[in-house]
Design a protein around this nucleic acid. Structure first.
Length: 939
DNA sequence: GATCTCACG
DNA sequence: GACGTACGTGAGATCC
């Protein structure tokens, strides 16, 4: 299974443009008359549907659109009023089919594009040019000769009836010239069907001959007098202007202003129910059968919530440019009831909460917004106060609080809909809203999260905040919070924003969330990521939300004592440091420190970075310690200063006054590898490596009658390396439970295990970690403090012993180059944007990311799978332990003392089996548990 | 707001 | 051979 994720073929980046108008006529004439039950003729509709079905089924394109002529009048009629004027009306039994065909396109969920004043061909030419500029292949589904001028350079045509490609060779056969000169030939030959005049007496054959000889139309007209045949010569001279007009008529415009950009034409799965209904209505039995068969093959379906009753026929276009925008402030109960009923009816609603802050455990709910379709949303203010006014005397009556529905009443009305299992609630960063509602006694479910969908689709490629995604996908700049609430010291909380502006902001958030959701959700299935999203990221929302709600008890007194102790010791260090430096200075300023060390004291080895400042990092100071006593004191001071400011002092301020606990915020879409991150406070970087630092952990404690239980994976990332790199010796060592670094040392340096010295083992350990990070000789050398040449020799020896690791690294880099992302064992895609950078340093960095991401990401997937299962397993076992924190490979629980053993055993079992049943690693996973009154003790 | 430094896995 | 190096984070302090 080792290399499976690397072998996915790259999806071809192509745009299919269907010439809808051209196709209608050909299908009509090619197919025998057909009618549906009510007598409406449908043969062209059937032909069209069958063709689209085939395209959608077999398509290797990521983009598809059907283009129609809009009206008869176009810019060409201004140039030449007779253009296409003689065209007969379409046959009686074709006319009703035009509208039906547009319905068909919409039923397929394919963008339907047309523009007044331009022909379909001009739109096709324009899209082709845009797509080529973006590096896409273009396939024009048509056999219209007027489109042949576009063939070549990544553009081909496909005859939809004969199912035959049309390339430069076919064009050559038709016109006698290559595609680039088709326009010239057509200008001369004219076209009786379209009423393009051309030059009398000259047909395609002669025109091709002339163009072949003179190069192009202008050269030919300029040298017309040289032509030998008198009649041809006269004609060309007399009708030169007419030829030029013909050229204007024939030449396709590729600069039409597009309403939907190329990236708005991404292929989306049709709604099967809609499509089926359309086929049945038109009596297309064969297509019904085909669709049913396809559905069965896909094996999915049916798990989508019902679409809204008034869903737009063409969601894509509607998301990008909603027809109208109407945001409503809801202050009457009846209006709220109406919105809730509509949401319940629709089965899907986007929801956003407005609050007084960023932390959902301390902020207060201020309002709720809802949206059901693009451009329409409402804001329900619940706790807006009077807007503060600059002036006004104490004698004035206090400004009135705006009219709002009573908060508790509104929440009581919302609750049944928010908890209704048949109504999908869509949010952007739904964890925040989930926690917020939970605090109001509402358990929102089922949910979808546009932020997480974007993260699963394009993690690592860009951020996933709503503002960024709105601009990226919808081309819409959202109102920023600053714009309505101000910034700096003038910033107010949302409850002080006047209702009209609050509505603009809040309703837009729900609107944009819904639009992003409708746009991005279908892409999950197209990318094969739907299951990943549904089994890993989405279920994690309430799990992590609950962890944030739990928080962890922190002993304020312990931290306060530590802080004074740290302050005292810093003072002592400061006296000593000033003495050693010869003067007082700001020790916390690297700039001043560098000047003291290198300019004033004159220590050797000062290196200035690109900003011109001396580097004074811990590694530099350590190496300076042999020359002078000052660097060592600085290091000691820094350690204490860090512990005091970042941990002892800051942590106290993070204790929630209501709960007496610290509630971190876990970011679910922050990292490029799939890991969580933690902030406010960051509980994932609480000190542990030094004795001094570990004192901070003693402040993290369990509630009375409880203990903290810490369970962590032993060497997960190395185990994953052993699995995907096919490192058999390492795998066996993991199975046998022997010291893995010693084992590596033995294998690589040829030292027998029983004679292993600590130095050799240390080297092997560094290499093992280096592998995880996308090793480089330089990096390893720096880590080990040896010469780069020596480090390079270690790496060579390692690769020789474990060639599988080389293969893995090469494959990871290759995969990243080919498709821009690498995958974890569970299929998560980690995007590596710099992989094609022309700067070799940045490219090398991206390559190391490509090597590291599947390893770190697989570990992240594994612990996420465990986290989803643990609360359910605990509940089923009747255990009341609460999961509090996650630190990448560790989970921390608060457990009633009586349940410690059972909880520990159960958690370890779930963690160790977390890869199953999706996959089994070639190595066992091992989870180790520790228990104590504090987090320090539990380790 | 950028930069430096340092805490964690 | 260039280029500047271990992978992934968040926070506090300083300085512009």
């Amino acid at each position: 299974m080792s290399d499976a994720p690397l072998d996915t073929p790259a999806a071809r980046n192509a745009l299919y443009l269907v010439d809808g108008s051209g196709y209608i006529f050909r299908a009509y004439h090619a197919l025998p008359p057909m009618t549906r039950a009510d007598g409406t003729p449908v043969n062209a509709v059937f032909g069209f549907s069958a063709m689209l079905m085939k395209l959608v089924e077999e398509i290797d394109a990521q983009h598809l659109a059907v283009i129609f002529d809009s009206a008869r009048e176009t810019f060409r009629n201004e140039i030449y009023p007779a253009y296409k004027a003689q065209r007969p009306e379409p046959p009686e039994d074709l006319r009703p089919q035009f509208a039906l065909i547009r319905d068909a396109v919409r039923a397929f969920n394919v963008p339907c594009i047309e523009m007044p004043g331009f022909e379909a061909d001009d739109l096709i030419a324009t899209y082709a040019r845009h797509a080529r500029k973006q590096g896409m292949e273009v396939v024009i589904v048509s056999s219209d000769k007027d489109l042949m001028q576009l063939v070549g350079d990544g553009v081909t045509m496909l005859d939809p009836i004969k199912n035959k490609p049309i390339g430069p060779a076919e064009v050559m056969e038709k016109f006698g010239v290559p595609p680039a000169k088709v326009v010239d030939v057509q200008s001369l030959a004219g076209d009786s069907v379209d009423n393009v005049p051309g030059v009398p007496g000259i047909g395609v054959k002669t025109a091709a001959q002339l163009i072949e000889e003179y190069g192009d139309l202008e050269s030919l007209l300029a040298r017309a007098s040289e032509i030998k045949q008198p009649k041809r010569r006269e004609s060309l001279i007399e009708y030169a202007e007419q030829a030029r007009i013909s050229r204007e008529l024939v030449k396709l415009r590729d600069d039409v202003p597009l309403e939907v950009p190329v990236n708005g034409l991404e292929v989306r799965d049709p709604e099967h129910a809609t499509l089926l209904a359309f086929f049945e209505e038109n009596n297309f039995k064969r297509l019904v059968a085909r669709l049913t068969a396809l559905e069965a093959m896909a094996g999915h379906g049916g798990n989508q919530p019902p679409a809204g009753g008034s869903a737009p026929a063409n969601p894509q276009a509607a998301e990008l440019a909603p027809a109208q925008k109407s945001y409503e402030t809801v202050v009457e109960e009846a209006d709220l009831v109406r919105w809730i009923a509509a949401a319940t009816e629709a089965g899907c609603v986007s929801v956003d909460t407005e609050t007084t802050g960023l932390n959902p455990m301390s902020a207060e709910l201020v309002g709720v917004s809802l949206s059901l379709e693009a451009g329409r949303a409402c804001y329900v203010p619940l706790a807006h106060g009077a807007t503060p006014v600059g002036q006004g005397s104490l004698l004035d009556a206090p400004p009135a609080r705006p009219k709002q529905i009573d908060k508790q009443r509104a929440l009581a009305l919302l609750k049944p809909m928010l908890e209704d299992p048949s109504v999908l609630k869509v949010g952007h960063n739904m964890k925040y809203d989930w926690v917020m509602f939970r605090r109001q006694g509402i358990d929102v479910a089922p949910i979808d999260d546009s932020m997480l969908i974007s993260y699963v689709l394009e993690g690592g490629a860009h951020g996933h905040g709503m503002d960024e995604l709105s601009e990226l996908h919808l081309g819409h700049k959202t109102i920023t919070f600053k714009e309505i609430a101000g910034s700096g010291k003038d910033q107010v909380t949302f409850d002080q924003v006047p209702l009209d502006r609050a509505t603009d902001y809040a309703a837009e958030d729900a609107d944009v969330t819904g639009r992003l959701h409708r746009l991005l959700k279908p892409r999950l299935r197209e990318s094969g990521l739907l299951t990943f999203y549904e089994t890993i990221e989405r279920p994690l929302v309430p799990i992590i939300g609950q962890m944030e709600r739990e928080g962890i008890k922190v002993d304020r007194e312990v931290l306060a004592e530590m802080s004074t102790d740290f302050a005292r010791r810093m003072g002592e260090y400061e006296i000593e440091i000033y003495k050693l430096a010869g003067r007082e200075f700001n020790i916390g300023s690297p700039k001043q420190l560098g000047e003291i060390l290198f300019d004033e004291i004159g220590l050797q080895g000062g290196k200035k970075g690109k900003t011109g400042a001396y580097a004074t990092g811990a590694d530099i100071l350590e190496s300076l310690a042999v020359q002078h006593e000052l660097p060592a004191r600085i290091l000691e001071w820094r350690q204490i200063a860090k512990l005091k400011s970042t941990y002892a002092d800051a942590l106290v301020g993070q204790i929630n006054p209501e709960t007496g606990r610290v509630h971190t915020c876990f970011a679910m879409a922050a990292t490029s590898t799939g890991r969580l991150s933690s902030s406010d406070p960051n509980v994932q970087n609480i000190p542990i490596r030094t004795e001094e630092g570990r004192r901070i952990r003693r402040a993290f404690i369990a509630e009375k009658g409880h203990k903290l239980l810490s369970v962590d994976y032993s060497q997960v990332e190395l185990r994953i390396v052993a699995d995907i790199g096919g490192l058999e010796a390492l795998r066996q060592a993991f199975r046998d439970g022997i010291d893995i670094h010693a084992m590596t040392a033995s294998q690589v340096f040829g030292v027998p295990l029983d004679q292993m010295d600590p130095m050799t083992r240390r080297k092997a350990k560094a290499i093992n970690f280096g592998i995880i990070y996308g090793i480089s000789g330089f990096g390893l050398a720096r880590q080990l403090g040896v010469e780069p040449g020596e480090a390079a020799a270690y790496i060579r020896a390692y690769f020789e012993r474990y060639p599988g690791i080389r293969d893995y690294m090469d494959k990871a880099k290759e995969e990243a180059r080919r498709q821009g992302f690498v995958r974890t064992l569970f299929g998560r895609q980690c995007h590596v944007p710099g992989i094609a950078d022309k700067n070799p340093a940045r490219r090398a960095f991206a390559e190391r990311q490509a090597i590291n991401a599947p390893i770190q990401g697989t570990a992240a997937d594994i612990i996420k799978r465990a986290m989803i299962r643990i609360p359910a397993a605990l509940a089923q076992a009747g255990l009341s332990a609460r999961m509090l924190l996650q630190v990448h490979d560790e989970l921390l629980f608060e457990v009633p003392e009586a349940e410690l053993d059972a909880t520990s055993a159960l958690v370890r079992e779930v963690m160790e089996g977390a890869t199953r049943p999706v996959l089994d690693l070639a190595v066992p996973l091992v989870a180790e548990a520790g228990v104590g009154d504090s987090w320090d003790q539990a380790h």
